[in-house]
Design a protein around this nucleic acid. Structure first.
Lengths: 187, 187
DNA sequence: CTGAGAAATTGCCAAATGACAAGAAAGCTA
DNA sequence: TAGCTTTCTTGTCATTTGGCAATTTCTCAG
């Protein structure tokens, strides 16, 4: 919970009392490796903060799934379009390690927005961050070759090295074989 | 203006009178080919609807720029993060044909949201559309080879064929040379 | 600690894409 | 329309990436 508190504080100004109330609306969940927290086609109803572990967001079904994003500790994630517009999710969310999540239902989130208007800035920033990350990704995929994409991904987060090649490769837009080879060449 | 009216109507329910007031806040602009409506580093302050023509959104500077998106008639575009958070724009917007824009300043847009709450749904959908488009793009870049990406881009909009290879190639994440060749092969 | 299943590596070869430069075609302006 | 500029195409060759299958390594439940 402290991690979440710090995360919120890093994005908005808020006093201790308000923050405490906000946090009381969240609940903790432990997930085993492999657990799905959302499957594509379902309507998403929660926001997730990763206290520890890693979640992969992907489209399609294994083994031909495509990893859109991999989130690690101290990251706030959600299937925003599905939550906001009650449409079926395009993506599945899966824990790829033992993971501790701190979650909140979207209804509660909305009530917090009403009760604490300054908290709305938090919601907006989640959107913005998500948007910018995806845009960055497009640029990377358009611009760099596989080797550079891998290097930059590692630079951004060491965590990325915890991810199996199977998942990482589709995130980088290459095959597992190629990723294995280029990683070897880099060393 | 009729085009914009239809566009708004396609996204939200709104009566004639309200729509008329809303439209009166927009203004028309004609742009010659090559004109910039926003350069990266500037803070964006307007939303744009393309009545005719085409706008390309790109990062970096020519000739090494990367085209993130190409928008055509009946598309609503904006540098949303820059508008919302007053941060410098990461992208430049440039007319790549003679273009007629219908624009509105963000301040006026905000006032419309207050005056016509149902219009907020319009704003939200712009965000969502932008987000989904970018996500689609990631998936495409991750999943398909250059030939497929080109085919799918053409399938989505015939308009794409109006775009010079120079711009189109970086949008597809390949070189102009390769695009020229693969286009020949397809015919 | 062990053995089955999953994941990663490697070899071999084919296909796709890139780099660079030259020439052809198309578009624009006076 | 002529002439200039930009864009497009093509040739050659190098490099990157993919496909497939065999083998090795790793992981984890029992």
């Amino acid at each position: 919970m402290i991690r979440l508190a710090n995360y919120i504080r890093s994005l908005i100004d808020i006093n201790d009392a308000d923050l405490r109330v906000i946090l009381s609306n969240f609940s903790k969940k432990k997930l085993k490796k492999g657990t799905f927290i959302l499957k594509h086609g379902q309507v998403a109803s929660s926001y997730y903060f990763i206290a520890s572990g890693a979640i992969r967001i992907f489209s399609g079904d294994e083994p031909k799934d495509k990893t859109l994003w991999i989130a690690f500790e101290n990251e706030f994630i959600a299937e925003l379009p599905s939550i906001k517009f009650l449409t079926p999710s395009s993506f599945s969310f899966q824990a790829i390690e033992e993971t501790t999540l701190i979650t909140i239902e979207s209804g509660k989130m909305d009530r917090l927005y009403e009760e604490f208007p300054q908290f709305q800035a938090f919601g907006r920033q989640i959107w913005e961050k998500a948007f910018l990350k995806v845009v960055d990704n497009v640029t990377l995929l358009q611009t760099e070759n596989a080797t550079e994409r891998y290097k930059k991904a590692v630079l951004k987060t060491d965590y990325i090295q915890r991810v199996s090649l199977k998942y990482l490769s589709s995130y980088l837009g290459i095959t597992q074989t190629s990723l294995s080879r280029l990683r070897k060449k880099i060393k």
